[in-house]
Design a protein around this nucleic acid. Structure first.
Lengths: 257, 257
DNA sequence: AAGTGGTCTAGACCACTCA
DNA sequence: GAGTGGTCTAGACCACTTG
């Protein structure tokens, strides 16, 4: 009995009685993976359940096998499914880690219904400090937009966020920044985020951080430093954020291939 | 001039004069992506360089286009390349984030040449605390292996690691644990890690942690909590680790699709 | 209009697992 | 031996970007 998952006499899932929209712009593989994800999340496909095999699934949905594979692969990459040759495809985890959409804190909180709000502490144009110029791949002495914000969740101060942007993204107004995440505003300007590199660490709170976050100086803070790139490889933003660790943590899903 | 990357009159890279091994077991797409990654990392393909288009590349290497696409996609997923329809494929970043191989701290340090060593503090079989049983998806009151280790890097204490495993993985000997990472030992037993969910946070050091890590009690620690699954969806391990934040941080690369 | 990546098809053969 | 996923082919048409 090395396969405890098969205890429950799981039969291949035959749901997915879906009609696909072949005329619209939404890729078939995406339509399929979305419905699979939904079935997993609402429990129709419990942990351990086996998915119908690729060939049959393809035949039943009238798509080719590569299309089905693409749909399944997306869920594998999100940590929801596991494939084993000779065995089949099973649900590993009931939660599908949503597309790592390069979410911002604002959007994360909004999704959780935590009523985010923002206080703008600083909005200025400065000469980039050398580390910042370096991270933004800009020449030394270049002017950049610098902003510092205090993010609240449900009325409690959660994070101090410091960001640096090339001037070309600098069309940010104060009222906008109070109501929307920085990433929302940039997307509205047509910026598309593609890649981000983050470094997550910890350190003690400086005096002003402690005051802003209502903790005692010297208490621990979670830190995140991020450089974000758009789809042409241009650097969009460099940020250094600190979080109250009792109110926030990073969830990361790793999948090996 | 919205494409500063094209300043350098970049011509499509025509390297990759490679002969593929079509007889061996290594997939063609993997051979191709490996060599592309190498070319990116040693600077033959600098940031901003454009890759030869998919069709030509396929013709030149005598493989089909889907095979080339698969190779390129792997590098896109690793944050090294960016594709744009109508434009082409460019290098965004000189570092290829190695397959998120579900690396362990031991392996990370080894790769950096930091001479990891481990002191085994505890190795015992206990009744799983309820949180642990829950994370391991085991019934309450189940026996599990519990270990607690102190990890050194280049002679300095870096991390206190506490792990819980189902008994079936319990064949761990003390001397082995001193010289190898836990993940190495489990792999040697035939365990293949597939998915892990981590939660990264921060908190203050407890008294014994402070003593072990040679920091003052109350100073900040970086924390990581992880549940790892194998390729059959079985839980392998649940761990709670703390790190000295002046010596360690987590690097995360996010890619949107 | 030409060039690029995005999607999709309808097959093929292989490697692995299990009964 | 039957069933499964893993790899690969040789095309097709489309959507988007640029000159």
């Amino acid at each position: 009995m090395t396969q405890p998952l098969s205890e429950s006499s799981l039969e291949p899932f035959d749901g997915l009685r879906l009609q696909l929209d072949r005329s619209g712009p939404i890729p078939l593989y995406y339509q399929i993976s979305q419905r699979l994800a939904a079935a997993i999340e609402d429990g129709q496909l419990p942990v351990g359940a086996r998915i119908e095999n690729e060939i049959d699934l393809a035949a039943r949905l009238n798509v080719s096998r590569p299309t089905i594979r693409r749909a399944i692969q997306d869920l594998v990459d999100q940590g929801a499914l596991v494939r084993r040759r000779g065995i089949g495809t099973q649900v590993v985890h009931g939660k599908v880690t949503r597309d790592v959409v390069l979410t911002s804190l604002h959007e994360d909180l909004e999704a959780l219904g935590r009523a985010p709000s923002t206080e703008l502490l600083t909005l200025e144009t400065i000469t980039a400090p050398s580390e910042v110029a370096n991270e933004l791949s800009l020449p030394l002495e270049t002017e950049v937009v610098h902003l510092r914000r205090l993010r609240y969740s449900a009325g409690t101060a959660l994070s101090v966020m410091e960001n640096y942007l090339p001037l070309r993204f600098g069309e940010l107004s104060e009222p906008e920044l109070a109501d929307h995440g920085l990433y929302q505003l940039l997307r509205a300007q047509g910026v598309t985020f593609k890649v981000a590199r983050q470094k997550i660490g910890a350190r003690t709170a400086a005096k002003d951080e402690a005051r802003l976050l209502e903790v005692t100086p010297g208490s621990p803070l979670l830190t995140m430093q991020r450089t974000a790139y758009d789809n042409s490889g241009e650097v969009i933003e460099f940020g250094r954020h600190v979080y109250r660790p009792d109110l926030y943590a990073f969830d990361v899903t790793l999948v090996s291939r």
